[in-house]
Simulated assay, not measured.
Amino acid sequence: MTDTLDHAKRALRAELRERRQQLSDAQREAAAAGIRDRLDELVDSLGATSVSCFLSSPTEPGTRPFINAAIARGIRVLLPITREDGLLDWTVATAEGQEIESVYGVPEPVGEVLSPIAVNDVDLMIIPAAAVDRSGMRLGWGRGFFDKTLGSMDRRPPVYAVIYDSELIDSVPQDVHDQPVSGVVTPTRVQDLSTDS
Rank of each mutant, 00 (worst) to 15 (best):
D25K: 15
L114Q: 09
S194D: 13
G151V: 01
E15N: 03
R143A: 10
G47H: 09
T188S: 11
A131H: 00
V184N: 03
L87D: 14
V51Y: 10
A30S: 13
I117C: 11
L55I: 10
Y160E: 11
S57K: 00
T186R: 07
A8S: 13
D3C: 12
R36N: 13
L88F: 14
P128K: 03
L5G: 10
R83L: 07
R134K: 10
A93S: 12
F66A: 13
V172T: 02
I81M: 10
P107Y: 05
Q27P: 05
L12C: 05
R155K: 15
T149D: 04
F66V: 08
R155E: 09
V110R: 08
A118I: 09
R76T: 15
S171M: 07
A131L: 01
I71M: 13
Q191Y: 00
I126G: 10
R189E: 15
A130Q: 06
V132F: 00
L42V: 08
L124V: 09
P65Y: 10
E60D: 08
L42P: 07
A72I: 11
Q191E: 12
I169Q: 04
P107I: 06
M125V: 15
R36M: 14
R20S: 08
A118L: 11
G62M: 10
N68V: 08
T2V: 00
W90R: 04
Q21M: 14
P107E: 13
V184T: 02
V184K: 00
R156C: 13
R138H: 03
D89W: 09
E96Y: 07
V176I: 04
P187T: 06
V43S: 13
T2Y: 02
M153V: 03
A118T: 03
R143G: 09
R138Q: 04
T59K: 00
S57Q: 04
Y164H: 09
A130T: 05
G34K: 04
I67K: 04
H7E: 15
V190F: 02
G140K: 02
A129R: 03
A118E: 14
Y164P: 11
G74T: 06
L124S: 09
R20H: 02
F66W: 11
V103S: 08
P107K: 02
I127E: 06
S194I: 11
P116H: 12
P80V: 14
R76K: 10
L23H: 12
P109V: 01
D170I: 03
L79W: 10
I71R: 14
G140S: 04
E99V: 00
M153D: 07
A93Y: 01
E112I: 12
R138A: 04
L42K: 08
D165H: 02
I169P: 06
S57N: 08
A70Q: 14
L39V: 14
D192Q: 06
L139I: 01
R28Y: 07
L88K: 01
P58W: 07
L42W: 07
L39F: 05
V110C: 11
T186M: 05
M153A: 03
G142Y: 02
R17K: 06
V132L: 00
V185D: 12
V185N: 08
S45T: 11
A69T: 11
W141V: 00
T94C: 07
P173N: 00
I169M: 03
T82L: 01
I117W: 05
D192C: 06
T186V: 05
